[in-house]
Design a protein around this nucleic acid. Structure first.
Length: 502
DNA sequence: AAACCTTTGAAGTGT
DNA sequence: ACACTTCAAAGGTTT
């Protein structure tokens, strides 16, 4: 893990990874602001096409693009240049939107629940949200706010196309419910297959189903089944989507909270209790108890272990219980069907808690829709290439936001799933074809890199072994610049990233 | 249907 | 300690 001991004590931040290309592109950006969207689009498209073709012929090229450091113009090929410029233009002009308009939750400084027991925002949270979004009138939750959210969730093209997608049609009185607006980055992720329903917090509008507002916004009747839902418990915040259960089919106590579609949510386990996203209250309790330090589950105060709603505290974790509800979310919630101990056991193992998103993933989540809308590209691989470039084109401050978000998200994830480890998600048993193939391919790529890649740190002699890129700043930290490679050392003040081969 | 592609970063495993 | 690997999102494409 990259470590920048810039202090702070929290090693979760990856400030060292913040890369700025200002030294190279600012002028271009300004100039390019006058460029037309059509040209940008054409550039990107053609560049992508050319690029992919080029990549097929030479992996070195793709690798070169991955490396932020090579600043030498001679090192760039025309294709790449045009693409980068196009991306910059978009960043600087067309897409000049608030880089990170919506991460309200995660940015709540103390990570405690912004909710008051009655479900409304705490003053602190309101203050915070108002700071983050001055335009928002963050007041204690109300039906009005829910309606506003309901409106906001409508997948209007404006959400997708416009440079500022996170407008709130009914922009007032926002409760936290409203943070599943388009392109809002969730604090934590739902498990993948957990539920076909929309999470309470979602990244992008493409996950919203028109005319099918999320359950928590609907008062009482499930749209699919027509089965009435229990009213929204006042003490449970919809902050986190909770249940992977199917609304309406199962009278899950949190059925009203069940998201509608798509976006993964951290799962809830019915049996053992690696809980998905807990209620705000439980989150709050959890965080409060875990805030200062990450207590192991056994240290969680007993009174937090079970919410008044009967929802187990996330800290009560059956170690190594995996969450994967690919079978049936419905059945996973149907306690009556869980009489079979074996089934329960299986379900426990199936549960899958996803990794928290890193900064770049958060960025991608937010920006993907924009890129897709602008470029009319749909292939994720191409989109991701653009996003990768844009990521590098972001200013330090802009990236910092995402790093901070990611850090918070990891913290939250850690607190919600104290026993979880990324290892849990390793397909340990399935290290079969795919991974082998991948490994082989990467090995081949690595070999090609050795052959073709020049030193990314400007015009220095080629680096022979590029298989292990390390950024000096990340690797040694700011206080050990004497250990940095020469190019990095001399370039750092200009914020030029570099790669060092260990 | 499953894996791949493509990106960066975090965290795991292996040496 | 360091290098390498896996997974996170996403959705079209390939196998």
């Amino acid at each position: 893990m990259p470590q920048l001991n810039g202090g702070g004590g929290d090693d979760l931040g990856a400030n060292d990874e913040m890369i700025s290309f200002k030294d190279e592109g600012e002028q271009e950006e300004k100039i390019s602001e006058n460029s037309s969207a059509e040209r940008d689009l054409a550039d990107v498209k053609s560049s992508l096409v050319n690029e992919s073709e080029t990549n097929q012929n030479s992996s070195s090229d793709s690798e070169a693009e991955r490396r932020p450091a090579p600043r030498s113009e001679t090192f760039r090929d025309k294709t790449r240049e045009s693409l980068e410029e196009a991306a910059k233009r978009q960043d600087g002009g067309l897409f000049k939107s608030p880089p990170y308009p919506g991460y309200p939750f995660i940015m709540i400084p103390d990570l405690t629940s912004p909710y008051l027991p009655n479900g409304s925002l705490s003053p602190t949270a309101r203050t915070y949200l108002q700071m983050k979004w001055p335009l928002l009138d963050v007041q204690p939750g109300s039906l009005q706010s829910r309606q506003a959210l309901k409106d906001a969730r409508s997948p209007s093209p404006a959400h997708i196309v416009g440079p500022f997608r996170w407008e709130f049609p009914g922009q007032s009185d926002l409760s936290l419910h409203q943070f599943h607006l388009s392109n809002k980055v969730p604090v934590v992720q739902h498990p993948h297959h957990v539920h076909p329903l929309t999470p309470l917090i979602t990244y992008s509008n493409e996950h919203f189903t028109p005319g099918n507002p999320p359950p928590h916004l609907q008062t009482d009747v499930d749209p699919k089944t027509g089965i009435p839902r229990p009213p929204h418990p006042p003490d449970i915040s919809p902050y986190y989507p909770l249940s992977p259960g199917t609304v309406g089919q199962i009278p899950h106590p949190l059925g009203w909270l069940v998201p509608q579609q798509g976006q993964p949510v951290y799962p809830i386990t019915t049996g053992g209790f690696r809980h998905p996203y807990p209620t705000a209250l439980t989150v709050n309790a959890s965080m409060s108890s875990l805030l200062s330090s990450r207590f192991p589950p056994h240290m969680v105060p007993p009174h937090h272990s079970l919410h008044t709603t009967g929802i187990p505290h996330p800290a009560i974790v059956t170690p190594n219980v995996k969450q994967e509800s690919s079978h049936s979310d419905i059945s996973s919630l149907d306690s009556s069907k869980q009489s079979d101990g074996k089934k329960v056991e299986e379900k426990k193992k199936e549960v899958h808690i996803k990794k928290p998103l890193n900064a770049f993933m958060l960025y991608m989540k937010e920006m993907r829709a924009k890129v897709v809308a602008e470029c009319t590209l749909k292939e994720s691989a191409a989109i991701n290439q653009i996003l990768g470039r844009r990521w590098h084109a972001l200013s330090r401050e802009e990236q910092a936001k995402y790093y901070e978000l990611a850090r918070k998200e990891r913290q939250l994830h850690m607190q919600l799933y104290p026993g979880w480890s990324a290892r849990d998600n390793y397909a340990a048993n399935q290290q079969g074809k795919r991974k082998k193939r991948k490994r082989e391919k990467q090995q081949a790529e690595s070999n090609e890199r050795r052959e073709y890649f020049p030193n990314p740190c400007l015009s220095l002699p080629p680096i022979t072994d590029l298989s292990a890129p390390k950024k000096c700043r990340a690797r040694f930290g700011l206080d050990q610049q004497n250990n940095w490679c020469g190019p990095c050392r001399c370039k750092y003040p200009k914020e030029v990233s570099c790669l060092v081969r260990a």
